[in-house]
Design a protein around this nucleic acid. Structure first.
Length: 381
RNA sequence: GGUGGGGUUCCCGAGUGGCCAAAGGGAACAGACUGUAAAUCUGUCGUCGGACGACUUCGGUGGUUCAAAUCCACCCCCCACCA
């Protein structure tokens, strides 16, 4: 028999276990496979802030994010291409997913204009104008050589009305189709994911998925959540949306979320997550633990000699006291960013790994109950 | 000893008759952060009261004035330069 027949190729995705709606699986990319459910640390400008690739490896990170908009502006995607793509440039040799700039349509809304053709940004760095078409965004991501390219989309802000959102999902679909058409002419090993939208409207969420799932993307994302809506509403939208996404492809909830959000998403059958919370909050003193959220700057920790999280085996928790971590934060020491980020990423990565193992062992409900106990406010919603 | 400058709420520091419980910064305390314009941002920051407000405060004591952190007198302390 032919060995090649059994060799997985980039884009192959297989669900290997389920427990209720929750599932675990494996996704193959040009830089190796990732086991789902997965949490992807965010490294917008090509670096997971305060953390080196060898640390990421040690934490068990399997895939990280980069951003099209940021890397295009600086240092430039062609410069990165000349250095062997993002992997060659930043010395991370495992999979990389790049966001398209669609989130910047939302977060930098003051600095952009949306047209049928694409989005025109005024650079947040120097004010210069740049037109991001769906095709250009593919080219940039090919230069970065990301393993998973996201199509350009419009991330609709919370509060957008039905009429606006309905028009927006049409635009997002047309952009997605243009991206796929353009890429099919140059198809390489890079995967391409579509992004569904629809704001807070279940009918539009359904319609966006209906339109996009007609096309052969390598995965489907839920976009436009956690943009200011009440958390209960986000959960309701997740619950509505997740089961509608094609079951045979990876399902990616973009930008979400807190530990409980992620476990909740897994319970609904979502496979992939990314979020800046563990790294940003680490730098701002909020640490996630098996005991819940800890604000390490609080005075009550000033003479607390215990570990940050007694259940955590990361370098930070093995080595330092809460009192020391508080001191580092309070003093603005650079080590604070590193140790805090190391811990928060460990917590998120361990959490999702634990969820995957729970699914594989048919014990997901019990696992989720434990996480809910640490985050009762969110679990109550 | 002389001359000049200065002592303001935890710190630095503005304020030189009423608009001053007193700018601004820092510290402190608390909060936020979800496909990163974020090592960022917000709130509190004399005491008591929910608020309107009441009370105490600008080195000390006394005085001028309807009114003083701000003007006057004396005293205490600090700094610079000169002897």
């Amino acid at each position: 028999m032919n060995i090649l027949e059994n060799m997985p190729s980039p884009g192959d995705f297989k669900v290997t276990a389920t427990d209720g709606a929750a599932r675990s699986g494996i996704l193959h990319t040009a830089h190796g496979a990732v086991r789902t459910p997965i949490f992807m640390p965010v490294g917008t400008v090509g670096s997971v802030k305060a953390i080196a690739p060898d640390d990421l490896d040690a934490l068990g990170a399997e895939i990280i994010l980069g951003n099209t908009y940021h890397l295009y502006l600086r240092p430039g995607d062609e410069l990165v291409a000349r250095r062997g793509g993002l992997h060659g440039f930043n010395a991370w040799d495992k999979p990389i997913l790049t966001d398209s700039g669609g989130y910047q349509v939302f977060s930098l809304s003051e600095l952009r204009k949306i047209r049928e053709e694409g989005v025109e940004f005024r650079s947040h760095l120097d004010g210069s104008k740049h037109l991001f078409t769906p095709e250009k965004v593919v080219d940039i991501q090919l230069n970065l050589n990301s393993d998973i390219m996201m199509v350009l989309d419009e991330c609709v802000p919370y509060g957008a009305d039905h009429d606006y959102t309905a028009k927006s999902i049409g635009l997002t679909t047309r952009w997605a189709v243009r991206s796929l058409d353009y890429y099919s002419g140059i198809r390489r090993a890079n995967l391409m994911f579509a992004i569904t939208q629809g704001g807070t409207f279940t009918d539009l969420r359904t319609e966006s998925i209906r339109q996009l799932s007609e096309y052969d993307f390598d995965g489907f994302a839920i976009g436009g959540l956690s943009v200011g809506e009440p958390k209960a509403e986000m959960y309701a939208l997740m619950a509505h949306t997740a089961p509608l996404l094609p079951a045979g492809k990876p399902r990616y909830l973009m930008g979400v979320g807190t530990p409980y959000d992620i476990v909740k998403g897994i319970s609904m059958g979502i496979d992939m997550f990314d979020c800046v919370l563990p790294t940003r909050n680490a730098r701002n003193g909020t640490l996630y633990t098996s005991l819940g959220k800890i604000n390490i700057k609080r005075k009550e920790y000033a003479e607390d000699d215990g570990p940050l999280d007694p259940a955590c085996s990361c370098y930070t928790c093995r080595t330092f006291s809460r009192a020391y971590l508080r001191h580092l934060y309070t003093s603005g020491e650079l080590l604070s960013y590193r140790l805090n980020s190391l811990h928060n990423l460990t917590y998120f990565l361990d959490l999702v790994r634990g969820a995957r193992e729970a699914v594989e062992n048919g014990r997901f409900a019990a696992f989720m109950a434990k996480v809910a106990a640490a985050y009762p406010d969110e679990a109550a919603l």
